[in-house]
């Protein structure tokens, strides 16, 4: 992939988002807002969306006219560490309030360390256990923040 294609995709996605949000500002609920005032609730957001759309068009024009270069996206190297950490972190965030903090954090820390290629298992296990326990004690006992 080249920087030109990447920029075109990015600008196109932004334009679609702008269009969807602009359509949202036309919905009935906003027509009844700001009664008796000079500007309703979507006056300012519409300005921002217009500016964003113009900038997206400018980015498209620049991508088409300007220089392009190849992007070095070494997917075979990135896929496991980045994809794995994304999936693990997403799962951890989604279940953050539903699982007890300490066991979930231990599992998460150990799994992330393994996915990122750390292989000294004793060090990994020790830190994966000690860190969540230490954090739990610190936040619950010292700082008074109730963790799940």
């Amino acid at each position: 992939m080249s920087t030109r294609i990447a920029d075109l995709i990015f600008a196109a996605v932004l334009l679609v988002v702008c269009a969807v949000l602009f359509l949202e500002t036309l919905s009935d609920v906003y027509q009844r807002t700001g009664l008796g005032t000079a500007y309703n609730a979507v006056f300012y957001p519409r300005i921002l969306l217009a500016v964003l759309a113009l900038l997206s068009v400018a980015l498209i024009a620049k991508a088409l006219v300007g220089p392009s270069a190849a992007l070095r996206l070494d997917l075979s190297r990135y896929a496991l560490p980045v994809g794995g950490s994304l999936v693990l972190t997403t799962g951890y965030a989604l279940f953050f309030t539903r699982l007890p903090f300490v066991p979930a954090a231990i599992l998460y820390s150990a799994a992330v360390g393994l996915i990122l290629g750390y292989r000294r298992l004793t060090v990994l296990a020790a830190t994966a256990i000690a860190m969540p326990l230490g954090l739990f004690l610190l936040f619950e006992s010292v700082l008074g923040v109730q963790l799940p």
Partner: peptide, 12 residues
Amino acid sequence: PTAILLGAITLF
């Protein structure tokens, strides 16, 4: 090790 640091940063 960076791998251990990154896990800690996510927890924080």
